[in-house]
Amino acid sequence: MRAMLILFLLLAACARPAPPVPGQMQVVPPAFGDSRPHDWPGRGPAAYGVHGIDVSRWQAAPDWNAARAAGVNFAFLKATEGGDRLDPAFGSHSEGAARAGIPVGAYHFFYFCTPAEDQARWFIANVPRRAGNLPPVLDLEWNPHSPTCTFRPDPAVVRAEARTWLDIVGRHYGQRPIVYTTPDFWDRNDIGQLDAEFWLRSTAATPADRYPGARWTFWQYTATGTVPGFSGGTDINAFVGSASAWHDWRIRRSLR
């Protein structure tokens, strides 16, 4: 009898449901404008049904409820930079978006003058692991305006440092981070070699035209968007799939 009881408990544990994942959130069609619209040929942003934004300290005091009602279905928030800089608006953006029911992810702007290990630890120290959040993001691009770091290492070094950050951060959050990058950075450093999902910037051509053959999950298609609830130009992004695919992706890729 005791052996049967133990077996029953073991089977019950195996049948126990997985940790909670986000429920299906209604996808709101985008109602955005653009102060400098691009005439998209072929499969432009309008072909995609799930849109969102990315923001930093430069978007001050937004109305997240208005943004959600206008079709902001996700938001990537700048959290950290290098090994010692925290975006001062990260906390307020996180709280505001969460209250409006917008899924959020945090991104880190990489500096090539600070070891990847230090940058990963800095990100982990400042970005809580919250169930339901989107995966972390590694922002890889040159920063020609930096007063302290204009170093551009060899492509092999760039990729090695990126892998170190991705590995450390991925282990901590339980999800492999997404990689954001720009056309020039992609070309010079062969970033497609990294084991990651990609968020690609391309404001004057579709990803298919600008990154031939690349697989992507998010496309940043403008930096001059006009989004209700936000003042000034706002970065707008499209998710690659349908509303149903977005729901499935969130279940698979959200933090637990």
Rank of each mutant, 00 (worst) to 15 (best):
R163I: 02
V240H: 09
Q26A: 14
R129E: 12
L166M: 15
W186F: 13
G174F: 11
R250P: 02
F110T: 02
W58Y: 15
T164S: 13
G44I: 05
F109A: 01
F90W: 13
P29N: 10
A70Q: 11
A3H: 10
A156H: 08
V27S: 05
D139A: 05
W142F: 13
A245S: 13
R57I: 11
G225P: 03
F76H: 03
I191W: 00
R176S: 14
A214N: 10
A69L: 08
A100M: 07
R2V: 13
R176T: 15
A70M: 13
W64L: 05
R188I: 09
A223K: 09
S231W: 01
L138Y: 01
H51G: 04
Q119R: 05
S35F: 11
L7D: 13
Q193H: 08
C113M: 09
T222A: 07
F76D: 02
D190S: 12
A31P: 01
P22T: 04
W122N: 05
G229V: 02
G225R: 03
D154E: 15
P22G: 12
D187A: 15
P22F: 06
L7P: 01
P29V: 07
R36E: 14
N237V: 00
D87R: 05
R256V: 09
H145C: 06
S231T: 11
D195R: 14
P103V: 04
Y107N: 00
W246A: 03
S254N: 08
F109L: 07
V127Y: 05
T181Q: 00
A162K: 00
R2C: 05
A245N: 08
S56P: 04
D154N: 10
P128L: 12
R250F: 03
G213I: 09
F185M: 08
A196E: 04
S56G: 13
S92K: 11
G229R: 00
D195L: 10
G233I: 04
D190R: 14
P88H: 07
N237C: 12
E81S: 12
S92N: 07
F198M: 14
S146D: 15
A70N: 07
W64Y: 15
W64E: 05
W58G: 04
G91V: 07
A70C: 12
C14N: 06
G105S: 08
G71Q: 04
G42T: 11
R85A: 10
E161K: 11
R253W: 07
S254R: 02
F32Q: 06
R215F: 07
S35R: 15
E161M: 12
N133V: 00
A160M: 08
T164M: 11
Y48G: 11
T234P: 03
A125E: 13
M4L: 14
G71R: 01
W246I: 03
Y211M: 06
I53R: 01
D84H: 13
P153Y: 14
P136T: 06
V50T: 02
A196Q: 01
T181E: 00
N237G: 09
L255N: 06
H108K: 06
P62H: 04
